[in-house]
Design a protein around this nucleic acid. Structure first.
Lengths: 158, 158
DNA sequence: TCCAATATTTTGAATGACTCAAGATTGTGC
DNA sequence: GCACAATCTTGAGTCATTCAAAATATTGGA
């Protein structure tokens, strides 16, 4: 939040964007910083962060920037079922996600294999598999504790 | 497709719906048959099938029936990234999906473990994991062969 | 430093997938 | 066959996202 942490971040951000072959613009810089601050953000989340430092930004610019980043390979998009698309900066490693079905919280889980596809289906039926997307769903620590105390909720395991 | 296969199917369908504690109605029967015919169908796909035997059906009834079935546990909904929700009848086993990124074709892959969650993340960070959703993406046999043979045409083979 | 070329942003509208609501209809047990 | 509740239908509304075209800003070069 302070200038001392912001300044080098700005430099990083600029470098990453230019390094991806993209022009450095205010909206793009703000979008990348937003993703840095909130590692699993929806386009709307990003707009909120961006608007704080650059009020003129539109949701459309956010979508533009995000999809440019995804195409350039510096941002990854994933989409837990029933949730809007989420964007994250971790792209080099092949990690997976823990999603809380109650509050929507998302955590990263490192992949044991580390490269895609980390899993290979038993019978590929002729498919050429490039990637395995793994999403664990359940309850985050906070929701689990509030739920398990006198718990009548049914755990729909399946 | 003939009456000889349709008749016992109708009986099955009725039994499944009633067995789930739901009233048997024309739209519901038609929706369940549609899923039987097309194992990975979107609501729209289902409507197409349903409309053939019951033209009065609306998309809304299809959504109603599908979500009733999902709640009742006789149908499963899943949602490959960037695709509308798909519905399938296989609910008892814990299987996964192969999705073709080019034509959208979906195949089932049996899960080696057989029950959910079939995978356990290395570090759960306090999460109580109920289910692991695994989606393999790549190219189906048809798309893989047309793509590798020096071709630029995109095969929209549903 | 200023310019031109063009990448990017902005504004506004449109789409697809799905949900909400309320009145009409139908299935089911009696 | 009736009554009551479950379900269907119609119509409108929402959310996430994309399309389009004119306005603006960035970057390499003069």
């Amino acid at each position: 939040m302070t200038t001392s942490t912001q300044a080098p971040l700005d430099a990083d951000v600029a470098e990453v964007i230019r390094g991806a072959g993209l022009r450095l613009t205010k909206p793009r810089g703000a979008v990348l910083r937003a993703l840095h601050d909130r590692p699993h953000a929806s386009a709307d989340d990003v707009l909120s962060s961006v608007a704080a430092v650059f009020p003129k930004a539109s949701l459309q610019s956010v979508y533009n920037a995000l999809s440019d980043f995804v195409s350039a390979g510096i941002v990854r998009r994933f989409e837990p079922a029933g949730s809007p698309g989420l964007y994250e900066l971790r792209v080099d490693d092949n990690h997976h996600h823990l999603v809380c079905t109650q509050c929507g919280a998302v955590s990263d889980v490192d992949c044991a294999v580390g490269h895609a596809p980390c899993l290979t289906p038993s019978e590929t039926q002729g498919f050429v598999v490039h990637q395995a997307e793994v999403t664990y769903s359940g309850l985050c620590a906070a929701c689990a504790s509030t739920t398990t105390t006198t718990d009548t909720t049914k755990t729909t395991t399946g």
